[in-house]
């Protein structure tokens, strides 16, 4: 790739750098993996071995996991469902509303377009807490405290998503929809049949970001949700952590279960993600 050393004859130099690089990478990888490994191993230990220094459990206890899932005090399965359910709805709605708006910004001409777009961009800088407080009082007024709707609706209109998809749509050649317009296709047809399929990579990236963000969302459910059966995983984890105090092995089992879906999603999607992050950072 870019930094290649073409000086010939200095094999020792290249060798040296090769080994240093690998050693450094390996060291970093170890540091990255160490907490995860400890977590997984601890989740299989009996409680008495958490305090001991042996890295491997003397006897593996997969029942820690079933203990968490079948716990009387918390309904972990329901938290799982709630998190995935809320995150999936938000993702779907965000993709839909954002792609519509992005189409209007990227593929249509109308007066005031750039001004509205600048407004969108400007609000992306606003810290979350600024809008959080009025949104909370709004939820109080609308009687949406403690409901799925209160979790889903406010999160479903993303300025960032609109921005990201607009960036993607701008890269699609304008000749396509010109041709379609010639054929008498309506804007809805062009959006639905031409642009949307071509914007697929962008939609995938936006889906991953939105899903991930809402699956792990903490602040909003923390202030909004009061019923046990509506709790999402992060809130459930917090509660679990506070009532199970010393049972570190169960807490670690719960944590593992919490992040497994993310790891799966990540491994499957990681190629798309890399591109998405790099594109999202390009300033519009």
């Amino acid at each position: 790739m870019s930094i290649t050393d073409t000086r010939k004859g200095q094999w020792w130099f290249r060798r040296g750098r090769f080994y240093t690089s690998h050693a450094l990478l390996f060291l970093f990888a170890l540091t990255t993996l160490f907490p995860f490994t400890w977590m997984v191993l601890a989740s299989f230990k009996p409680l008495s071995e958490i305090r001991q220094t042996n890295p491997l459990p003397s006897e593996w206890h997969p029942e820690n996991y079933t203990d968490v899932l079948n716990s009387k005090d918390i309904s972990f399965k329901k938290y799982y469902f709630n998190s995935v359910f809320v995150a999936a709805w938000v993702t779907l709605l965000t993709c839909f509303t954002s792609s519509l708006a992005a189409y209007a910004f990227a593929r249509m001409c109308w007066p005031g377009r750039d001004a509205v777009f600048k407004l969108y961009l400007a609000t992306m800088m606003v810290p979350g807490v600024v809008t959080m407080i009025p949104n909370y009082t709004l939820m109080v007024q609308l009687h949406l405290l403690d409901s799925y709707l209160g979790l889903i609706v406010p999160a479903s209109f993303s300025a960032f998503g609109t921005f990201l998809l607009r960036q993607f749509m701008l890269t699609i050649s304008p000749s396509l929809d010109e041709a379609a317009t010639m054929d008498g296709a309506s804007h809805w047809r062009i959006y639905w049949d031409i642009i949307l399929p071509l914007a697929r990579p962008g939609l995938i990236v936006l889906s991953i970001f939105t899903f991930m963000g809402n699956y792990g969302s903490f602040f909003w459910p923390l202030v909004l949700i009061k019923s046990e059966h509506l709790r999402t995983l992060p809130i459930g984890m917090l509660y679990f952590d506070s009532i199970y105090g010393r049972q570190t092995n169960l807490i670690m089992a719960a944590s593992v279960m919490n992040i497994v879906p993310l790891i799966v999603l990540f491994v499957v999607m990681q190629r798309h993600l890399v591109r998405g992050i790099q594109l999202g950072a390009v300033k519009g």
Binding site: V140, Q141, H143, L145, D146, K226
Partner: peptide
């Protein structure tokens, strides 16, 4: 208090 005032 907030929940009572909000009717929930």
């Amino acid at each position: 208090i907030v929940q009572c005032l909000a009717g929930v």
